[in-house]
Structures are given as C-alpha cells and as structure tokens.
C-alpha cells in the first residue's frame, strides 16, 4: 500500500508491503537508520520515535498506521550543528556508552519532558521505564534528563 508520512519535517510517500513495521520503513525504505531494534516484544524501547508528538515504539506500529502522521526520529532533533538540549545533556552527563539504546532513549526523554517539563528523578525513572539501557545503569541518563529540564543535578 501507499503511505504518506511526514518524517522530520519532510513529506515522504512510498509503496510498502502491508505488514511493514514503521521501524523497518524508516530504516530500510527511507534510509533513516538511527532508530534501532533491540527486541521483538516491545520491551526495550530502542526503536522509540515520536508520532504526532507522542512517543511510540516503532517496532509495534505498522507503517500503514502512521499514514498521514508526522514522525520525528533522533535524526530530526539537532538544529544543524547544534544539539538538542536533551542530546547535549546526554553528552555532558555521559548518559550513553555503546549508543544503541540512545536514539530511542532520547526520543522517550524528549516526550517525557514535553509532558512534564520539570520532572523529579523518580518521574524520570518512571517515564523511561519502557526503555532499556544495558550499559549505563541509568544513573547518568536520569542526570541528563533532569539537567535537560534546566534543573540542577546534584553531584
């Protein structure tokens, strides 16, 4: 079927097999390979993107379901050379190691801050529960998200 999706501000229109998952559409059809796949049970959140502003696990959505929607991936966050505040905070606070969960984690964090601009550490932990990171132990990710909200991070 034909799907029309606005991806990172650009209109895309492609013919896809009905069963194509959004994440495979992004990666394989559109060549946007930032969004990773870490599981097959909607558990890890590596594939998190924003669909019409809401964070969504793109391995559990058909491309067809996103027809007519606006999708944002981590490729669409930075303004030129300037990182998005969440991206910058992840660097400043060493919120990533291998980087594989990072695109999804950042999109989940962006969505979290949209809903809750001044989260507590517990809010961040709760909000990111659906995103698994195996490297950092989460401490620095929590620091990064709190910092990205403009709040002081105790050290």
């Amino acid at each position: 079927m034909r799907v029309t999706i606005e991806v990172n501000g650009r209109r895309t229109e492609e013919e896809v097999e009905d069963r194509t998952l959004l994440v495979h559409h992004l990666r394989d059809t559109l060549g946007l390979t930032a969004t990773n796949i870490g599981c097959d049970t909607t558990s890890c959140g590596a594939c998190t993107v924003l669909v019409d502003g809401e964070s969504v696990k793109s391995c559990t959505v058909l491309a067809a379901q996103a027809d007519g929607a606006a999708v944002t991936t981590v490729e669409g966050l930075a303004e030129g050379e300037t990182l998005h505040p969440v991206q910058q905070a992840f660097q400043d606070h060493h919120g990533l190691q291998c980087g594989f969960c990072t695109p999804g984690m950042i999109m989940a964090a962006v969505s979290l801050l949209e809903a809750n601009p001044r989260p507590t550490r517990e809010d961040v932990r709760t909000g990111l529960e659906g995103n698994l990171c195996r490297c950092t132990g989460y401490h620095n990710i929590v620091d990064a998200v709190v910092a990205a909200s403009g709040q002081e991070v105790p050290r």
């Binding site: 946007l32 991936t73 490729e75 980087g99």
Partner: peptide, 8 residues
C-alpha cells in the same frame, strides 16, 4: 558521542 547522539 556526537555521532551516536544524532543517529549517525
């Protein structure tokens, strides 16, 4: 980090 953070 910069390449990993931007999905590159």
């Amino acid at each position: 980090d910069p390449s990993l953070l931007t999905g590159r």
